[in-house]
Simulated assay, not measured.
Amino acid sequence: MVTATLLGAVTIAIGAFGAHGLKNFVPTDAVATFETGVRYQMYHTIALLILGSATQVPADTRKWVFRLFILGIVLFSGSIYVLALKAVLPFSVSFLGPVTPLGGLLLISGWIRWCYGLLTIKSG
Rank of each mutant, 00 (worst) to 15 (best):
K63S: 12
K23C: 05
Y81C: 06
T120G: 07
Y43A: 07
G72R: 02
T55A: 13
L49E: 13
G104I: 04
L6A: 13
T28A: 15
A87S: 09
S53C: 14
G37R: 04
A59Y: 15
Y43T: 04
V82R: 02
G117D: 12
G97N: 05
A16M: 00
L83P: 01
L107C: 08
A4Q: 11
P58W: 11
T5S: 13
V74A: 11
I12T: 11
L118R: 05
M42W: 07
Y116T: 06
L85T: 00
F34N: 09
L119Y: 10
L48Y: 08
H44E: 08
F69D: 05
V99E: 06
A9D: 10
C115K: 09
L106W: 09
H44C: 09
N24Y: 15
A19H: 04
I112N: 09
T5W: 10
A87R: 00
F76Q: 07
V38L: 03
P101H: 03
D60N: 07
G52W: 13
V31Y: 12
R113W: 15
V88Q: 00
V10D: 03
V31M: 11
K86T: 06
T100Y: 03
F17E: 07
L105S: 15
V88W: 01
R39K: 14
C115Y: 13
T28Q: 15
F66C: 07
L118Q: 09
V57C: 03
M42F: 10
P90M: 00
K63W: 12
Y40K: 02
A19I: 01
H44N: 13
T5L: 12
L106P: 12
G18V: 03
S77M: 10
L105K: 09
D29Y: 09
A32E: 15
A19P: 02
L51W: 10
L118P: 02
L106A: 14
F25V: 03
L71P: 15
G8E: 14
G15C: 00
G18K: 02
S53N: 15
A32P: 04
T3P: 03
L71F: 15
V99M: 06
G97L: 05
V88N: 00
Q41N: 13
A30D: 14
L83T: 02
I112L: 14
V88A: 01
S79K: 00
A47F: 02
G124N: 04
T61F: 04
Y43S: 07
Y81L: 04
P58Y: 14
I108N: 12
L68Y: 11
H44K: 08
W64G: 09
M1S: 13
G124F: 10
T45N: 04
F66R: 12
G15A: 03
P58I: 04
L118A: 01
A87D: 05
L49R: 01
C115Q: 13
Q41P: 05
R62N: 09
Q56D: 12
A13S: 08
M1K: 10
R39P: 05
R62H: 12
T33I: 03
K63I: 10
